[in-house]
Amino acid sequence: MVGIEEVRHLAYLARISIKDEELRLYAEQMDEILAYFNMLDELNVSDDVEPYRMCRAYNEMRDDVPVAFSDNVLSNAKNTKGRFIKAPKMSS
């Protein structure tokens, strides 16, 4: 069971503020998601399938050759100052 305090902590980690009355709702929804994942645990998988490897390919790499990207990426940023992107100040 996901507790109210766990939801509060997750909200802190995600740097979002949620209202007290929403805490219970989110806790219930997370419980549902976890219950679904628990179903996966019941699956019988053989030992040579390692569940934490999600991709069959391996050794896909590229050469160390730089190529500049020329589009103006700042056009996607709402808040800019000169060439900088403005972001909320976080206490360190």
């Binding site: 992107i85 403005k86 100040k89």
Partner: peptide, 12 residues
């Protein structure tokens, strides 16, 4: 300074 600024300027 970091204490007086209202926002951060990010350079990626």
């Amino acid at each position: 300074s970091i204490d007086t600024a209202n926002y951060a300027l990010v350079d990626y």
